[in-house]
Design a protein around this nucleic acid. Sequence first.
DNA 1: TCCGATCTATTTTTT
DNA 2: ATAGATCGGA
Length: 764
Amino acid sequence: MSDILTHLNQAQKQAVECSEGPVMIIAGAGSGKTRALTYRIAHLINTGVDPFNILALTFTNKAAREMKNRVISLIGSSEGRNVWMGTFHSVFAKILRIDGNNLGYSSNFTIYDTDDSKRLIKSIITDFNLDPKLYAVSFVLHRISSAKSNLFSANDYINDSEIRAADQKSGKGMIGEIFQAYNARLRRSDAMDFDDLLFNTNLLFRDYPEILYKYQHKFRYVLVDEYQDTNHAQYFILKKLAALHENICVVGDDAQSIYAFRGANIRNILNFKNDYPDHKLFRLEQNYRSSKTIVKAANNIIANNKDQIRKTIWTDNDDGELITLLRAKSDQEEATLVANSIFGVKMSQQRKNSDFVILYRTNAQSRNFEEALRKQNIPYKIYGGLSFYSRKEIKDLLAYFRLVINPHDEEAFLRAINYPARGIGKTSIERLQVIADQNEKSLWDVACQINNLNSEINRPTIARIMDFAIMIRSFKAMLHTHNAFDLAKHITASVNIIKELKEDDSPEGISRIENIEELLNAIKDFTTREPEPSLDGNDEQAGMKLLSEFMSEVSLITDADKEDKNDADYVLLMTIHAAKGLEFPYVYVVGLEENLFPSIQSLNTREDLEEERRLFYVAVTRSELKLTLSYAESRFRWGNLTMCEPSRFIDEIDPHFIDKPRRAPFSGPSFLQSSSEMSDTKASKMKPLHPTASQTDATNANESFEASDTTALQTGMTVAHQKFGTGKVISVEGKGADKKATVFFNGFGQKQLLLKFARLQILE
DNA sequence: TCCGATCTATTTTTT
DNA sequence: ATAGATCGGA
């Protein structure tokens, strides 16, 4: 065992060596936070702590996996595999699968995702005959979710006069009742939602002291990453879990707390001091990631927040390049400028695509950048966005898997029985639900006995329901005799999903089939993967990998957990939230406009605005060498053109760190110009820049363009479009404001244009 | 029961 | 703009 501590700076070393008792590490962006945590675990093991006695909670499963691998290579032994590492949700799900039977759940309970929860709430609102406009599903779910993450049960909710008054005031006095019904239906389905994983773990520890003791005893050392993003439930459970040994180490940065909207509580950091008065506090303030310019600019930004623990982040790195600010006329032009800039830097600096990232506030912004990158032939990849596992075709197929593992899972039942169509319609399903409610049984139980029950369902439909039940039962029989992949393949083939999708040969239809293939490949990978060490440390189930095991992993997987393929070289596009913990040489933070970033919903309270600013801080501190900011003066939002003001956040950075705003020439070698010369800040406020030669050309091209009156537009005409160049009109449909033309443009292919917006010049 | 046409809300972020 | 929901007719 070599002395690993020599790789650390003084502060990191102290934080790692202080292994007993409560420890809080306040770690600035890029200060080697994960490094400290990893070394701490390695150091614990090297000084004789059994890895089985260590629990490390991370923000994503990917972070856990990476940390585990680093620990293993640091200590030079695969013993490191035995550390329990994962997200709060996945670790607690494991605990509940082992001990949740005490609370009345089977070990195969289903985890409902947000989509399932919303469907369930929606059906309850309908059952209660409530106005769906007043009781918006996402609002109701949000209320329930915050209650649960503050450890409020449905009864607590109903009996709390303050909550009741608030709900009644807004005319939504029934939320408590919906909450109750929602929980009851989850129970009936042997299912938990995300918040239940925390809520029920707390319940288990509260009501079963011997179980709490078991885990307190097991986890002699508890480490928590990203502590600033824990919510009340997580905080409370942690405190219980660590109560016996008090060997708890939390690592966090209040300046990077960006999940308050989902219940994260920065006060947990302050509470730590009160709960453990004899704690040791360490500060990591040296940044190893970014240039001086970036570190200082980031400090400028965060200084505007009142609510923070003061600290001084500094770096020994070079000054680095100035921050570039790009101003675009439209959202489309913004994307073009960014793509051109990436292309330029890539060429002049000989950089890989993966050295670049584009960060935006909302997923909806990705579209323009995709188009612009495609035009520049720059490979890109969207990270996150619509998650793979929330695609319809994937959920449809997973519904069958879920149902086979837990037949009481009602959301899965409803999905599976509904698709592919098998002649069981809405009316029959409703009747099934009525019987289920009356007898307090799951839909599955009702379906199995439908032949013996009095129902108004007609004979042929009853036969179809029975066929469905027989099919599911036949899959169930294979659960333990077949491995995950064989069973998944069998089910996929038997339910004709592929056959159904093959009817649709559009690009979307083909991609759906590819997605299903990808899912089956993932299951195949899983089936052939090395078995994880089992939970209690004895590998009694060294045999087959079962579908149920795959499914219990899948429900907590997010796109952020996907392994990156090492050979891949892409420019990455992602939301700032998704970028937490990552770093890139070249970072583009786009859409810096008022009402977008900061988001319009965050302008009401200081707290919300400060969270938004922390989000900007996180974005800026992702960059190592060079940061580029951009905004557009106009943007399409919900279908129409909106004028935009530059974000207040831009002005919070000392202008000395910013290169003057410029519109890079539309075409031409912008990257050949030096961008690092200091700018006159006064001049930078003035709008037009000294036009470069190519910029003049572009302007002229714009000015010579005159849109024609298109009321007489006809098939066969040749037209010009500012962006797409010349093209031939293939067809004209609709009339008035809805009049559209299909035009084939050379080099851009066929486009549908709404004539109201598209400015076309008729050439002949 | 199924299918197409029309209407609608969506855009904050996610375990 | 667009996907999903809803409604009405076959």
